[in-house]
Computed example of a mutant assay.
Amino acid sequence: MKPNKPISEFKEFIAKGNVTDMAVGVIIGGAFGKIVTSLVNDILMPIEGILIGGLDFTWERLQ
């Protein structure tokens, strides 16, 4: 195997645009994760607390 082969394969991979698609997917995934976390913590959990007797789950965290 030539030493230049991995470098040329990497350049081909970047040229195909897969890196850009993957980067956009990671950014959108991170933003979506924050939206879901906010939705659960700020909207769903308070409603659930009211429905099951006014318990407050804001202190609950998975360790």
Rank of each mutant, 00 (worst) to 15 (best):
S8H: 14
M1Y: 09
A23C: 05
G54Q: 09
N4Y: 09
N18E: 10
Q63P: 13
I27Q: 12
I35Q: 02
K5W: 13
E12M: 06
G17R: 01
K34Y: 13
G49N: 00
F57P: 02
N41P: 07
K34W: 12
M22Q: 08
G53Q: 05
V19A: 05
R61S: 12
G54M: 09
K34S: 08
V24K: 09
E60Y: 14
E60L: 15
V36S: 10
G30N: 07
V40W: 04
V40I: 09
D21R: 06
N18A: 07
P46D: 01
S8K: 15
L51H: 10
M1R: 08
N41Q: 11
K5S: 09
L55Q: 14
K2S: 15
G25A: 06
T20G: 05
W59G: 12
V40T: 04
G17C: 01
T20Q: 03
P46A: 00
I35Y: 01
K5Q: 10
N4T: 14
I28P: 00
I43G: 07
L39F: 15
L55P: 04
A15F: 01
I43H: 10
M22A: 11
I35G: 02
S8L: 15
G49E: 00
S8E: 12
P3I: 08
D42E: 12
I35H: 00
A23E: 03
F10L: 06
V24E: 09
E60I: 13
P46N: 01
I52V: 15
M1H: 12
K11F: 07
L39C: 12
F10Q: 00
I43D: 08
E48Q: 11
K11M: 07
G17N: 01
F32M: 11
D42V: 11
S8C: 12
I14L: 05
K11D: 04
E60P: 02
F10A: 05
V40D: 01
N4R: 10
F57W: 02
I27R: 11
L39I: 14
L55N: 13
F32P: 00
P6K: 02
K34C: 10
L55V: 13
A31V: 06
E12C: 07
A23N: 03
I28L: 11
D42C: 10
F13S: 01
L62Q: 10
E9P: 04
K16T: 07
S8V: 14
I47G: 04
